[in-house]
Amino acid sequence: MRTPILAALLSLVGLPAMACETFTIGNLMIEHAWSRATIGAERPGVLYVEITNTGSADDALVGIATPVAEMPMLHETVVTDGVASMPHAMSVPVPAGQTVALAPGGYHGMLMGLTTTLKEGEGFPVTLTFRDAGEVTVPVEVLSMQAEGPDCEHAGQ
């Protein structure tokens, strides 16, 4: 029952180089939303995105939601004395005038309980909830497992 709906959702946002589009909500600019392909659906997926706050007031990313994961959450990779751990992040600060990146090795969305395998070249929507700016839904591009980020300059954007 759920699979056809999901497939429809995936195909709707399955446009190439969508990670290079920019979305705005209030004073926030959302760019480079991408994920890595997964092997099957039992391993968690990941979400990376860049948020620029062009306003004069601080905001914060307080939640993520997506139809491809039952339990999406915000995490931060922390390396202490050479040991990596992944504590929950209650929120990711988006200070006024700054760009915050959920990027490999730092803050990231952890997509637990995937409802589908994330395949390279496909996409899925994610709804970002900000403390003040509210909600915005953006398409996420699934790149290869080896990707370190979308190659937007070469995509001509």
């Binding site: 990596a84 090795g105 990231h108």
Partner: peptide, 17 residues
């Protein structure tokens, strides 16, 4: 480990590079 979504693919990707 393969259930690791961030650090491990990043390290493997770095090493591949």
């Amino acid at each position: 480990f393969t259930f690791c979504p961030d650090v491990c693919p990043t390290t493997l990707s770095d090493i591949s590079g």
